[in-house]
Design a protein around this nucleic acid. Structure first.
Length: 261
DNA sequence: TAAATTTGACCTTG
DNA sequence: CAAGGTCAAATTTA
């Protein structure tokens, strides 16, 4: 993977984690252990299957084994993780208000990266909700989140979360911008790697990308059983602030970038 | 008491 | 003008 730049690397990890998450859920539901039991709908299987296929296809593409998803010539680095150009910027000409409200430009048709999941996944970052709006044509409101470190680290990452169906519960998360904040806390799951036997799902060797002095990333990361044992918190009533597991590693990967600019 | 959430006002865009 | 996105005061929570 020497040819993989950091952005593709992150995205590949994201897709792999998401794909495995969906695969686990699909496996559970196929064997009748899903929490919804008999009421678990075929539509959910379809969604999960689609997620599995999509995630792994993207990851493979990023890793150079399938160019079908890169045929448009767009590097995935142009996705919102790294696209700060589409972030809202102050607009001193707007409004003329003295209280600073509304001095921004709405992001237009900037790239957005979104995912639809049955549950919320931890991206390793903390978010603060700053708004909620009813969306025309949707039974569910859309929630707006920004990075908790917007003020202290000028981190401009934002995301929107909207429930798109009730049964099965599906949530669409759209990310804009990327995190420039540093993650200072190490997810415990990663701080103390589990026993070797637990490294059974995904194993990362970052030596091709990092040297030993790098901070905030494990030379060899894996996903031990904790992930399977710890259900991902569902987002109920627009309130989700405690995420865990799957993408914690991604958050960590993101965090190793350090501050930009 | 600090941090997070709620919610109505205000803004931009189409 | 409607819809969607953001701000910030008020309120809630830890």
């Amino acid at each position: 993977m020497e040819g993989l730049d950091h952005c593709d690397w992150k995205l590949a990890l994201q897709e792999l984690f998401q794909g495995r998450d969906a695969a686990d859920k699909l496996h559970g539901s196929l064997f009748g252990v899903h929490e919804d039991g008999d009421r678990f709908l075929a539509a959910t299987w379809e969604d999960l299957a689609r997620m599995v296929a999509g995630s792994f296809s993207k990851a493979l593409s990023l890793l150079g084994y399938d160019d079908s998803t890169k045929s448009d010539g767009n590097s995935l680095c142009s996705l919102p993780w790294t696209d700060t150009a589409c972030l809202p910027v102050p607009n001193p000409l707007a409004g003329g208000k003295v209280d600073g409200r509304g001095r921004y430009k709405r992001r237009k048709s900037c790239h957005s990266w979104s995912e639809t999941t049955p549950a919320h996944l931890d991206d390793g970052h903390t978010w603060r909700k700053y708004g909620q709006k009813p969306i025309r044509g949707s039974n569910f409101p859309r929630s707006y989140y920004r990075c908790t470190h917007k003020s202290d680290q000028s981190c401009e990452a934002v995301k929107q979360v909207q429930q798109i169906s009730e049964e099965p519960a599906l949530y669409r998360t759209t990310y804009y911008g990327h995190h420039t904040c540093k993650i200072t806390s190490v997810p415990q799951q990663f701080a103390i790697p589990d026993e070797e036997t637990e490294f059974n799902l995904i194993y990362f060797d970052s030596t091709a990308h990092r040297n030993t002095t790098d901070e905030g990333f494990f030379p060899s990361a894996s996903f031990p059983k904790y992930y399977k044992d710890k259900p991902v918190s569902l987002m109920g009533g627009g309130e989700v602030q405690t995420w865990s597991t799957t993408s914690s590693m991604l958050g960590f990967v993101e965090g190793k970038e350090g501050k930009v600019g």
